[in-house]
Structures are given as structure tokens and as C-alpha cells.
Amino acid sequence: MSEIMLGSDDEIRISCKGVNVAYWDNLAIKNVSMDIPSKQVTAFIGPSGCGKSTFLRTLNRMNDTIDGCRVTGEIKLDGSDIYARGMDTVFLRQWVGMVFQKPNPFPKSIYENVAYGPRIHGLFHTKAELDDIVEQALHGAGLWDEVKDRLRDPGTGLSGGQQQRLCIARAIAVNPEVILMDEPASALDPIATRKIEELIHTLAQNYTIVIVTHSMAQAQRVADKTAFFYAVPLTEDDDSNLIEFGDTKQVFESPIDERTRQYVEGAFG
């Protein structure tokens, strides 16, 4: 779609042009071009199988680990092509962190969960610095007050919502610019979900956040921008599976495309 409306004051963090993703011979993402604004929340919505999670995972090259996955087109983070030859995924994933659908803390202590990223990237010199990073990250994820007395307890002993916030703390501990969230609240109860959503709001002051969600209500609550993806079958006539992208309010209240209108009104999905 050419109607990608970003206000002139939006600073662009990730710029995608003509991105295609294929698994062996099956095209999962076709010709997606969009600009993801800095320090805002961008939501990807769409019916199951529309490729929104696949597209999210191309943004930090998590698809690299999947056999037969091929990405073409151009994705630039702050102007540098992340699929360029010589781009180190280790550095890329330090800049672009990820939170997964199911909370997946490591089978280690709360402290070690958060400390793992800084450790592998060598972000500290002394134990005191690491302690500080861990505390800041836990503060940032709104978890510090709940766990400060039991940092040595296993991370897997926390509740589902706390585990997910631990995963967010783990992601921000390496000081990323972008945080990708793949349906971060879909495995949580409403109260935990609310906390995560509030956290996303707070985090957006410092980080660029891209979130995939199944819940249109959630997209409306947390997102500044919303992108609507529509699924296969991808034929010659469908020029892209990104149907519409714009301010959340506009996408939900006055969608331009007929399919977007039907989806946000709950006609299918």
C-alpha cells in the first residue's frame, strides 16, 4: 500500500521496502513496505496465518534459525540494512530485543535471567555494575518491588504475568532500541494483561515497540500505529499482504480498505 501515513514529526526507526519472506517455495510475506516510527507502539493485527508474526521475526532475523526461510527486500534499522552481508545477528538482537508469546524465563534465578544478556554482550566491568543493570531492568519492567527480596529464587517460580515481565526485564537489560513483542499477553489473565499493557505504554517513552496482537481491543489500547495484515492466498493480483497501516484511531474508526473495515468490525478473523 502506498497510503502509509506517518506524521511529519515521526522519526523513523525501521524502514522496510518490498519485503518478501518465503519458507522453501511458500511465500508467507509478500511485498511489505512500511516505516516503523521511533518511540511509539506499532501494532500488527490480522487474522491467523496472515504472516504478522513472521514479519515481526524478520525484524531481528529470528527467522534465520528456521530451515528454508528466505527473506528478500530491504529492512533498514536507523539507516543500516539488517540483512546486509556482514551484519552480525548478535549485535542486531542486542538492538532489537524480543518478548515471546509464552513467558519463557530460563531455568535459573531471577537475577541470572536478567543478567544473562549483559553477560554475553559484556556490558559491565564489575559485579556492582551488573547488580545495577539488573535492578534498573527490573525497575523498568515494573517487577523490582515484587522480586527484590528473592532475586536468587528461580524465575520459573513466578506467576505467569510476573514471568512475562521478567522476560521484558531480560530484554531491556541489554539496552535495546527496539522491542518486538509477539502476542505478549495472550497467555495471561486479564489483570496480568492490564499490567503488561501499562508497561508497554511506559516503555514506549524510551523504546520503539512493535507488538503483534490478536486482540483488537488491545491494539486500540496500546498502539499509536496499527498495521493490518491480510492472509494468503497470495496471487499475482494481491500486491501485498500489508493491507493498511496508519494511526490506530484512523485504522479502527475510518479504515480505507474494505477488508480492514470488515476485520475491525469483527466480520471475520
Partner: peptide, 13 residues
């Protein structure tokens, strides 16, 4: 999920 989480943080395989 452990593998994925570690890779997502920038760990090598």
C-alpha cells in the same frame, strides 16, 4: 523456548 529466548537476546547457537 529456552533456545529461542537465548537467541533473541543475541546469544550465538
Amino acid at each position: 523456548s529456552f533456545r529461542e529466548a537465548a537467541l533473541g537476546l543475541g546469544a550465538s547457537r
